[in-house]
Design a protein around this nucleic acid. Sequence first.
DNA 1: AAAACATTTGGCGAACTGCCCAAAAAACCA
DNA 2: TGGTTTTTTGGGCAGTTCGCCAAATGTTTT
Lengths: 120, 120
Amino acid sequence: MNKKRLALLEARARILKAMAHPTRLFIMETLSQREACVCKLSEMIGADISTVSKHLTVLKNAGIVLDEKRGSQVFYNLRCPCILDFFDCVETVIKTATEAQIKLARALPASCGGFKKSRL
Amino acid sequence: MNKKRLALLEARARILKAMAHPTRLFIMETLSQREACVCKLSEMIGADISTVSKHLTVLKNAGIVLDEKRGSQVFYNLRCPCILDFFDCVETVIKTATEAQIKLARALPASCGGFKKSRL
DNA sequence: AAAACATTTGGCGAACTGCCCAAAAAACCA
DNA sequence: TGGTTTTTTGGGCAGTTCGCCAAATGTTTT
């Protein structure tokens, strides 16, 4: 693995890592509709404003969102909405992986916490 | 944010988190070409076999790769190669984000470690 | 200038990650 | 059976993440 290739993989990993949190995905989806300020987002999310601000910083540092100060508020928006297209494929993975898990769970004896057929 | 939506976001985040490591991205790219066993992969990566095995476990648990035991070896392959298409967009983010960083760096005074124009 | 509002930053604890090493499992060969 | 190969698992250490709270910063209003 040469240096250049590694640098590219590291750059990709940084983006993915920045996205890899439910709250941050929620923010991205929300911002893909329209820009929003921190307080609006934290109201929707139901977490502390400081927590949401830090999530936004993570997204900003990764170059995923842009911020624009207007008055006392800071409005964020998604730099590249195409980033969400990707989830069509992710959903496929989730679906097939889930089905595999269920199959696995069915195969387990009840004593190991396996699901009963009737519960699925 | 309702329960169902949260569950979906968590599922997406799990996938992204599993992908968010340079070594695991390398594995995914490699497996998109052809299946490979653990020892072959760790030879390519240059890390301890146990480390690579754990990375593969992460990818497997996320449903991203499938494993198949043949003799004493375990061959892994990518469940859903479309998962790599996504990087066209990620690359755009990396590119524009990098450009923004450079612009930022240029704007910094040299005393803060800002780049000189001639160096870019 | 003081009060009110919006946001960011710092700090702390709990939980998680990633790496290496050593040991255990599993399959094969002689 | 004993030895070799391949892979997984467990332990320990250093570093990171995430959430809340408190405090600081910046902006607008009175």
